[in-house]
Computed example of a mutant assay.
Amino acid sequence: MPDGQRADARRNYTRILAVAEEEVSAHGAAASLEQIARTAGVGSATVRRHFPTRRALLEAVSGKRIEALCVRARDLTGEGDSRAALLEWLSEVVAYSVSARGLAEALSYDGAGADPVYENSCSAALEEAADPLLRRAIKDGAVATNVTVADLITLVVGIVLATEHHPDPATRADHLFHLAVAGLSPQR
């Protein structure tokens, strides 16, 4: 929200965001923008003025969660085993994404990247925060050199979106994440 907004516009933004958090929590990324506007007591044009795209709304709703994941990545950087630290963080991203409906959608890539106004700020923040974790694991030989944080976030998003309608999405997503990490070969 731009600081130069009028007081009523700031109040509208705050009210819309609070309602959007509840709607996204209840309905995920498919939350109705019209319902958000009605519940917030504003017109749909006001919602679209503050959040020109669904992604912009999801990113705003996910902002606190994304910041917590960024802080956690920084906390884990330099901790013990570099592979274990990276996998712990990724496991937390999976768990957070499963519990925070709409977060996986906010992290997904939609091809809008040509216009920086629509850049995926959630993924960009996570990529920046986790890059030192990944670089350390690569340097230690614990992760392949061609892996990127963007690859890992895409993997997490795929797992979370694929399991969101499962009766126990958290357990299923965790299982698939660990399967992806371990690979298909039997453990020896």
Rank of each mutant, 00 (worst) to 15 (best):
D75S: 04
R72P: 03
C70E: 07
E119R: 14
H27A: 10
V98G: 04
Q187N: 14
V47C: 04
E88T: 13
L87V: 15
L87A: 12
K64M: 05
E128K: 10
T163M: 11
C70L: 06
D151E: 09
G111W: 05
V157G: 01
P2N: 09
D115K: 06
V147L: 13
P169A: 03
P167L: 01
A144M: 02
G102D: 02
L176C: 08
A60T: 04
V98Q: 03
K64T: 08
H165L: 15
M1T: 06
A26Q: 05
V98W: 02
E119I: 09
Y118E: 15
S44W: 01
R136M: 08
A7D: 02
Y96D: 15
R54N: 07
L152W: 07
P169E: 00
A9G: 01
T46R: 00
M1L: 08
R48W: 02
S185L: 12
W89A: 08
R11V: 13
L69G: 03
Y96L: 13
I66G: 01
F177M: 15
A84D: 08
A29Q: 05
E22L: 07
A182W: 14
L87W: 14
S91V: 01
V71F: 10
F177C: 06
Q187L: 07
V149N: 00
Y13D: 00
A170R: 11
A30R: 10
Y96V: 12
A95F: 14
L33F: 09
S62R: 02
A20W: 00
G28R: 03
R11Q: 10
A84C: 08
R6W: 10
A125I: 05
A173L: 07
T154R: 09
A68S: 08
A124T: 06
T148C: 08
A45I: 07
A100D: 09
A30T: 15
L69P: 00
S44V: 02
G28K: 03
H50Q: 02
A18W: 01
T53A: 10
K139T: 09
L58Y: 13
S62V: 02
E67I: 11
G113S: 11
L17F: 00
P52Q: 02
R72K: 09
I66E: 03
R72Y: 08
D151A: 13
G80P: 00
V24C: 02
R55N: 12
H175Q: 14
R11M: 07
A180R: 08
A125T: 07
D81A: 10
E22R: 05
I36A: 04
L179F: 11
